[in-house]
Design a protein around this nucleic acid. Structure first.
Length: 433
RNA sequence: UCCUCGGUAGCUCAGCUGGUAGAGCGUUCGGCUGUUAACCGAAUGGUCGCAGGUUCGAGUCCUGCCCGGGGAGCCA
């Protein structure tokens, strides 16, 4: 039996004039009687195949007449440059093997409601747009891993089942863990702090879970975070690291995912503007800026979604806001030695209304100070015994942050909602598919 | 949890002051040798979200519930 090269559609340009084999699915089919146009996709791209009755065996021509949307096929054919084709290439089909004739596909090339598409998420993934988004997501994740790996950060994965909550349990998913209750992790940070004392610079990358009843374009119940933590580091180091990470992510996507950005009709210039240095403003300056713009907000208030949007739209790149009042931040934030009611923390707000994509800062490394905070917040001291231990044995200033992957993907892709940034989003009350 | 909009054919929707169900797309069949969400002709298609009420009569009006979209709050 004759064998053929089996290139991906993405790489078809290198096979012009050579008979090749392509394995994939029928995107759609058009017919003009004695000539069929079959668009095939293989996961890397799509290509129009021309099935001509005059030049192909009758049996194969009849097979192509039977093809339905999403039928799986293996074809042989000869690629050639074709200015009339959308990708610039076409393949003259010489043979068709049908793997399966698909039943009528629920998703048509037309408008569908969000509810219908979410119900068919497992099939929706095949669409050009979802394909582009998820490939960009992959590129972003790869950039994050490369960024930390290149800098010799050690990957230390943190647990999903945790024995107790950082603060309260109302926003956490809980489950039975034999004879005790376990909570699904809402962050790997506390464990990363332990890892940092063992390995220096570390990061974790995994899913996190929050049972908040948030039904907004920025929230998912299950989302992924990359969380670096550095020993012997302070707030400024965390800000520098965040800036470097965003730079790398943006460079990689612009370099390797041009096609996908084009599919999404993303305004590239908004992404190209993301070049360090990023603007850095204190919380106090941010409040003043909002007040000047007519927002009624006072020192001590946390930012609402609209406030973040107003603030971020004052800059053409992400803005780093640092030194929030300690009262509106987590218990473990190191106080600013110059103004102790401020915390040495920072948030990075993405432009164009995408909101907080990074949150982090310097952690309290003094035992007594941390214990006092745990008591102030009325947290169960016993549960934090191991965390307090870290402040007893060679405690050092340390800092880090968490970056929410879905919000970054939504921003880079210019999406209206984070539900499209992950293959199978877990949304409020919706667990299918 | 609150506010708001919606649920009618596989999908997207129309359906007037209450009178018994419509279109486009899809699918199937036929036609067409360059189609781009092809086009032309024919056929196919319904527990009007669920339950109760008003009425001679309810997709339409009323009540309750369920589900979904958008927003708010919540959100280290």
């Amino acid at each position: 039996m004759k064998t053929y090269p089996n290139p991906t559609i993405e790489s078809i340009a290198g096979y012009v004039g050579q008979e090749v084999m392509l394995k994939g699915w029928v995107r759609r089919k058009r017919s003009s009687g004695k000539i069929h146009f079959v668009v095939i996709r293989d996961g890397t791209g799509e290509l129009q195949g021309v099935v001509n009755k005059a030049t192909i065996e009758a049996e194969h021509f009849e097979r192509s007449a039977k093809l339905t949307q999403e039928s799986s096929i293996i074809i042989t054919g000869v690629p050639r440059a074709e200015p009339r084709a959308s990708g610039g290439y076409e393949v003259d089909v010489t043979g068709i093997e049908i793997v399966q004739i698909a039943e009528p596909f629920p998703i048509q090339p037309k408008e569908h409601s969000t509810g219908f598409l979410m119900e068919h998420r497992h099939l929706w993934l095949r669409s050009r747009r979802q394909h582009a988004i998820l490939r960009i997501r992959h590129e972003i994740i790869r950039a994050c891993r490369d960024f930390f790996d290149d800098r010799d950060f050690t990957l230390i994965d943190t647990p999903i089942f945790t024995p107790n909550a950082c603060e309260g349990t109302t926003n956490l998913f809980h489950t039975q863990y034999f004879d005790q209750t376990a909570y699904l992790a809402q962050s790997g940070q506390l464990y990363s702090e332990a890892s940092a004392a063992a390995f220096g610079n570390v990061y974790c990358f995994g899913p996190t879970f929050r049972a908040e009843k948030s039904k907004t374009r920025r929230h998912l119940m299950e989302f992924w975070m990359v969380e670096p933590e550095m020993a012997f580091a302070e707030l400024a180091d965390a800000m520098d690291l965040a800036e470097g990470l965003l730079k790398m992510v943006m460079e990689r996507v612009l370099e390797r995912r041009q096609e996908e950005l084009k599919t999404l009709e993303r305004d590239i210039s908004r992404l190209e503007a993301v070049v360090p240095p990023l603007p850095r403003v204190t919380y106090g300056e941010a409040i003043k800026l909002l007040q000047e713009k007519g927002v009624s907000i006072q020192f001590g208030d946390d930012f609402g979604g609209d406030d973040e949007t107003v603030l971020a739209s004052s800059f053409d790149k992400p803005v780093i806001v640092h030194r929030y009042p300690a009262s509106i931040k987590a218990f473990y934030m190191e106080p600013d030695p110059e103004t102790p009611n401020l915390a040495l923390c920072m948030d990075v707000l993405a432009p164009e209304g995408y909101g907080e994509i990074i949150g982090g800062g310097q952690r309290i490394h003094d035992y007594d100070k941390l214990l006092a905070r745990i008591k102030e917040h009325e947290l169960p001291e016993e549960a934090f015994r191991w965390y307090l231990d870290l402040r007893k044995y060679g405690s050092v200033p340390h800092a880090g942050f968490g970056m929410g992957i879905e919000r970054v993907v939504a921003w880079v892709c210019g999406l209206e909602h984070v539900r499209e940034t992950i293959a199978f989003p877990r949304m409020l009350y919706t667990l299918y598919p």
